[in-house]
């Protein structure tokens, strides 16, 4: 099945990846080749096979609902590209 440039633009939007036109064209070619290879999975009969999500036998791991130590706020916020006291600054989200 062909992966069109229109498909790639839709995926790029879902993935928040601001590809330019050249990037979209290149990606359509490359994804097509890889998806073509992956399509061999359709040969395998998987009727009634339970999908694997975890291989080590874990289920519903929980911990006590208790407060514990947390990271130092200053050390965490030191990585923010823009900061105002204990808040991270970003451009406006909603247009008025």
């Amino acid at each position: 099945m062909a992966i069109t440039e229109k498909d790639v633009r839709h995926l790029a939007k879902l993935a928040s990846l601001g590809l330019d036109d050249a990037g979209v064209a290149r990606m359509a070619r490359e994804l097509e080749a890889i998806v073509g290879y992956v399509n061999q999975l359709s040969e395998v009969d998987t009727t009634g096979v339970e999908p694997v999500a975890n291989v080590s036998g874990l289920a519903n791991v929980t911990r006590p609902d208790a407060a514990g130590p947390m990271l130092a706020i200053d050390a965490v916020l030191a990585n923010a590209p823009a900061r105002n006291q204990n808040a991270i600054l970003v451009p406006k989200v909603v247009e008025r």
């Binding site: 992956v38 999975l41 359709s42 395998v44 998987t46 096979v49 339970e50 999908p51 694997v52 999500a53 291989v55």
Partner: peptide, 15 residues
Amino acid sequence: DAYYKKAQQVRRRIC
């Protein structure tokens, strides 16, 4: 279903 779930099922076969 065609890709992710299918791959998880073939993963079971490999296990």
